[in-house]
Design a protein around this nucleic acid. Structure first.
Length: 557
DNA sequence: TCGTGTCGCGCC
DNA sequence: AAAGGGCGCGACACGA
């Protein structure tokens, strides 16, 4: 059963729908303040809620302490169906761009304010949304593989529920410990506009060593000039560039850069703006990356949370953090997608890279790693490029898959993930440079530039299939886990029992009462096994996890 | 003063 | 000749 939830004349409206998206029962208007209880009552029948935007609706429900198990996020689903190769001929995909192609409204606070803001009554959204849902059902039913696409859309929508719940719950964050860490590394918190003591000391030393009393190392051009005056010929001021140079100023500069980065990205200002009441509430954006990965927004930067500050993430008294990450996820995904038995076997014992060495393809674990990364990213030079022929001989199917994807991208074609998310087409500029390269009056330089651009797009599509399928695995993993955590929780509210608090591409963190930790760990492991089966069926590829039950996120790994 | 572009670096 | 994918953000640089 589907139940659509939309707004009409400023009021929530419920409409039961059949599997084709047609109304089956009575349309019901609800007072905004009664929305939670009404949804909770219908939820007992385990419907799939259909709404335009999960953030918008689910935030209201969570605020009323109501959870739902399943939903269809129409905006996220639309984006997938619009671009998927599997639905290319559908009415949805061939229609003109419309409001469903627009980006989601900005943030939950907007949705929250809108709840009681009657000054601008919205139009009746119902017709539009119901029509969109029917188009989506039609596109799925008529697609080349409805089962895969349905799984993808279910996982994408479940992910949106997880993202909203993680925003609601927040990641436990000890501001006092974070402040202590900053003070230890940087010195006491300075007055606004001043440098902390440690940073100021390093700056003095650096200026003396480079004989540049006015140097501002935060300005790359300024720094580059000062380095040049000191006889240090570097092309940029990047750390890896600087590390190649021998000079007493370099270690000081690297230390300065590291601490300056900590201060500006995750210093006291970050703490002030992102941590409230012992929780960090990062805003995730499901489907925010073309490949299907999540993005994050707001100053928090959940998906860039540096290891340096993870010690401030501490479980509540009597609780634990269960931290799990999927080991070598992307190469395993590639092996599974390609049906590469040899690579699957190499990963079966636990360490895929060790398995590749054992197979004789390359000599060392480091080489195995750099070669695999090169295969997935499209490296052609350096050690990684040199190792490719050997890797391809040992694993022709896996390497063949990414090379096929790269060739397709070079021709301007689209590629798809396991479950059917397709890559965007290259832009007009790209296509023009390709056709110009073979037109009249084309120079060697035109042709060379076109080849470079073609290969660049090939590297993108090469990586797309792997990164995107890994994102699908992670969505299925989280969706499975969310369900089993709910089953563990009995009648307790989300944040009163085991719940997801953090996600980072191939890693999850669950915050739970200490006595539940063993069952949570088991649930996380089972969810990973089930995710592998959902995507790849009987293909014998394993997705091992590293799991740690800790008090403090910094202690994991 | 503002918006936009670039650099550099954190994460995967 | 060389050629490594995807992000978000803060600080600086620069031009309107």
């Amino acid at each position: 059963m589907f139940v659509a939830l939309f707004e009409s004349a400023g009021r929530p409206v419920l409409q039961p729908l059949d599997t084709e998206g047609f109304p089956t029962g009575e349309r019901r208007e609800v007072d905004a303040r009664q929305l939670g209880p009404v949804v909770a009552e219908i939820e007992r029948e385990n419907p799939r809620w259909v709404w335009d935007d999960t953030t918008r609706w689910y935030w209201r429900l969570l605020s009323a302490r109501v959870r739902v198990e399943r939903c269809v996020d129409l905006r996220l689903s639309h984006a997938i169906l619009r671009g998927s190769e599997l639905t290319a001929g559908s009415r949805l995909a061939t229609a003109e761009r419309n409001s469903w192609d627009a980006a989601a409204p900005d943030s939950v606070t907007v949705a929250e304010d809108a709840l009681f803001d009657l000054s601008e009554p919205s139009d009746d959204e119902t017709e539009d949304a119901l029509a969109e849902f029917a188009l989506q059902r039609e596109a799925i039913a008529g697609s080349a593989d409805p089962a895969r696409l349905s799984l993808l859309l279910a996982a994408e929508s479940a992910g949106a529920l997880v993202a909203a719940e993680m925003l609601y719950a927040g990641l436990p964050w000890r501001a006092d410990l974070h402040d202590g860490l900053l003070t230890e590394l940087l010195g006491a918190r300075p007055a606004p506009g001043e440098r902390p003591a440690k940073l100021a000391e390093l700056l003095d030393t650096l200026r003396a060593l480079l004989d540049s009393p006015e140097l501002n190392p935060d300005s790359p051009p300024d720094l580059l000039k000062a380095l040049g005056r000191a006889g240090l010929m570097v092309r940029s001021t990047r750390s890896y560039e600087l590390k190649k140079v021998e000079h007493p100023a370099i270690p000081v500069l690297l230390e300065y850069k590291k601490l300056a980065r900590l201060l500006s990205a995750n210093g006291w200002h970050w703490l002030d703006t992102n941590v409230r009441d012992g929780r960090f509430h990062p805003e995730y954006v499901p489907g925010g990356v073309v490949t299907g990965r999540w993005a994050s927004k707001g100053g928090g930067g959940a998906l860039q949370l540096p290891k340096q500050v993870r010690g401030a993430v501490v479980a509540d008294p009597g609780w634990k953090l269960v931290v799990a990450d999927a080991s070598q996820l992307e190469p395993r995904i590639l092996a599974a997608m390609a049906g590469d038995q040899g690579m699957a076997e190499a990963g079966a014992a636990g360490d895929l890279y060790a398995g590749i060495v054992a197979s004789g393809a390359v000599a060392t674990r480091d080489q195995a790693k750099v070669a695999m990364l090169g295969a997935m990213y499209g490296a052609t030079t350096g050690e990684s490029g040199r190792l490719m022929p050997a890797l391809k001989r040992a694993y022709p199917r896996a390497i063949g898959l990414v090379e096929t994807a790269a060739r397709a991208g070079e021709r301007g074609e689209i590629v798809s993930t396991r479950l059917g998310r397709s890559s965007p087409r290259p832009g007009a500029e790209w296509r023009e440079s390709q056709s110009d390269a073979y037109g009249e009056g084309a120079t060697d330089a035109d042709a060379s530039r076109a080849r470079g651009q073609a290969r660049g797009w090939g590297r993108f599509t090469r990586n797309f299939v792997v990164q995107g399928t890994a994102a699908e695995w992670a969505l299925c993993w989280m969706a499975n886990l969310r369900k089993s955590l709910t089953d563990l929780s009995g009648d307790r509210w989300l944040t009163d029992t085991a719940h997801l608090v953090f996600f980072m591409h191939d890693e999850v963190v669950v915050h739970c009462p200490a006595e539940l930790a063993p069952r949570v760990e088991a649930a996380i492991r089972q969810a990973a096994v089930d995710a592998g089966r959902l995507l790849f069926g009987a293909m014998p590829v394993t997705f091992p996890l590293t799991v740690a039950v800790v008090d403090d996120y910094g202690k994991a790994k």
